[in-house]
């Protein structure tokens, strides 16, 4: 029944600015995805196109094989939690929960209140009186309490302190274990979510730079260091992503292929955050 999200050649422009440029991407059902990109790379635009908040000038977006355009039935299968709020000023957390239930009949009110208790969120409070962190928590609870098979979480930990972020990661994994679904997390806190992800998509200037299983990315690049001349000699003809020199020592970040290290050189792994920085710099 849930066969995934498919974007085909999607281009989205805002006036002169092209936010997405010919994006084709498949998000399989039942996996946790990381949608990564620098500011302005097109992450939120891409999520907006998936839940029909934005209408791309070109290309198509389908969910479970059906176009998302003017398709209310399909849209109830997606819950998008975003930065922007569309609620009236005086809305309380409790009202937010019950409105969400109106749109998403599978909403688990008991679970929502249980989570509110765990995060110490006062459901009687008005949304406008909540801090950034607590507003994020309120929206997160809405997202996790729906039964939607597709969750799009844009900056899900915005403003959350370290304890609440940790609680969120555990809650998310528990939720996913109990109700496996497609979860797309867009965040700048790469290091923290790296191990939660099964698949990673990196956007760069409106294009898909890569889309690969997370464990492949972990071994995609290595840092090799040693005496500068030796490193230069060794790295000739290889794809060097970045290099750094410290005195006579040199470290290069290279795509890990045929890693027969010369004598005197040592290699260390490159984690997702480091790789992201190397790939998206400049």
């Amino acid at each position: 029944m849930a066969s995934g999200i498919e974007l085909c050649d999607v281009t989205m422009r805002f006036g002169q600015t092209t936010a997405l440029s010919g994006v084709s991407l498949t998000l399989e059902s039942g996996k946790i995805y990381g949608l990564l990109g620098r500011n302005g790379a097109g992450k939120s635009t891409l999520l907006g196109c998936i839940n029909n908040r934005l209408w791309p000038q070109q290309g198509s977006v389908t969910i479970d094989g059906c176009s998302v355009r003017e398709n209310d039935r399909i849209l109830t299968r997606v819950y998008a939690m975003g930065e922007k709020s569309y609620y009236p000023e005086g809305t309380t957390v409790r009202q937010l929960f019950s409105w969400t239930k109106d749109f998403y009949p599978g909403f688990d009110m008991e679970y929502a209140h249980m989570l509110a208790g765990q995060f110490e969120l006062d459901v009687k409070k008005k949304l406008k009186s909540l801090s950034t962190g607590y507003l994020t928590i309120a929206k997160l609870i809405c997202a996790l309490s729906t039964a939607a098979p597709y969750l799009l979480l844009d900056e899900p930990v915005l403003g959350l302190d370290a304890n609440h972020r940790d609680l969120f990661y555990r809650t998310l994994l528990k939720n996913y274990a109990d109700n496996p679904r497609t979860i797309v997390i867009s965040t700048h806190l790469i290091e923290e979510v790296a191990h939660l992800l099964e698949h990673v998509v990196i956007l760069k200037r409106g294009r898909v730079l890569l889309s690969r299983p997370a464990d492949e990315l972990r071994s995609m690049a290595v840092e090799v260091s040693g005496k500068a001349e030796c490193v230069d000699e060794w790295s000739r003809g290889r794809e060097v992503l970045s290099e750094e020199t410290l005195g006579g020592q040199k470290t290069v970040c290279v795509v890990a292929e045929n890693l027969d290290l010369a004598q005197g050189l040592s290699a260390s792994p490159v984690d997702l955050q480091k790789l992201f920085i190397r790939l998206t710099n400049a």
Partner: peptide, 18 residues
């Protein structure tokens, strides 16, 4: 269980299962 380990270390259950 896979879930217990996944929660304890905040890692994707597919990794644990592997």
């Amino acid at each position: 269980s896979t879930t217990d380990i996944s929660l304890a270390y905040r890692i994707n259950p597919a990794t644990v299962l592997k």
